[in-house]
């Protein structure tokens, strides 16, 4: 199978504290991979390693390799700025840029990434991105509204549209629904399943039901280690590791 990302022996530390221990996994292209585990298992740290979001965190360091397009993102003179255009991210708290309209929020990535674009090209990209994020029908007449005036679920979809506008290959999502109500969560989940036709999606979640609903593959983390990774069906019907079984049956964690 075609892999969008290959992680080999990834370790990570905050100061002296090791938070990831020898993680090795392949992330299949155009699929949804969920990373689940109890709080503090390193799942968020892990996906932030995939687009080098930790670069600015003082005291953070990694060892091991993460291959994207055949190149190790930590050594082969990869510019993290260019990497992040290819590996986008959606955060736990919807974070549309304050003091920017819906339109500007979606256009902002393109506006600042160097290439000059005409107003109409920009409008096309914004429309396309909002459509993909299932937001166009609701907002096509309100593009000048401030992004922060939307509902929580709409804000999160706006953030997804914003990430899609720079045309990434991979979308990392760090608990994208944990700040949303069930209906908004369901819409985001649906959206994730739709987007997986075109994008590789890695979702961190502490909600196993959600992991079951949306994922093709599920990785279970515990105390910084990857305990088990398999298809969602396998993990949720017959996990190989006893600790996975205990976690998903609610016996601990």
């Amino acid at each position: 199978m075609d892999n969008a990302l290959q992680v080999k022996d990834l370790c990570a530390w905050f100061g002296e504290h090791q938070v990831l221990k020898n993680i090795t996994m392949d992330i299949r292209r155009n699929s949804v991979t969920s990373v689940m585990g109890p709080s503090g298992c390193g799942k968020s740290t892990f996906i932030r390693c995939l687009n080098r979001m930790h670069d600015l965190t003082p005291g953070f360091r990694v060892s091991g390799e993460v291959f994207f397009d055949g190149r190790n993102i930590y050594t082969d003179r990869i510019d993290p700025v260019l990497l992040r255009r290819k590996v986008g991210m959606v955060f736990q708290q919807p974070n549309p840029f304050p003091r920017m309209s819906v339109f500007e929020n979606v256009a902002v990535g393109l506006k600042f990434n160097g290439k000059k674009r005409s107003r109409s090209e920009m409008a096309d990209v914004v429309e396309k991105s909002l459509r993909m994020a299932a937001l166009w029908d609701e907002l096509s007449d309100h593009l000048d509204r401030p992004g922060t005036s939307l509902s929580g679920g709409q804000q999160q979809r706006l953030c997804i549209a914003r990430a899609l506008a720079v045309e990434p290959e991979i979308l990392l999502m760090d608990e994208p629904c944990s700040a949303l109500d069930p209906t908004s969560s369901a819409r985001i989940e649906d959206l994730i399943e739709d987007l997986s036709d075109k994008y590789t999606i890695v979702v961190v979640t502490h909600n196993m039901q959600q992991a079951g609903r949306i994922s093709d593959s599920v990785a279970f983390f515990l105390l910084g280690e990857l305990i088990e990774m398999d298809t969602a069906a396998k993990i949720f019907t017959n996990p190989a590791d006893k600790r996975t079984e205990e976690y998903i049956t609610g016996r601990f964690g």
């Binding site: 039901q209 609903r213 949720f236 019907t237």
Partner: peptide, 9 residues
């Protein structure tokens, strides 16, 4: 059926 029960609750 088992898959739907396990994954979709």
């Amino acid at each position: 059926c088992i898959q739907i029960i396990a994954l979709r609750q």
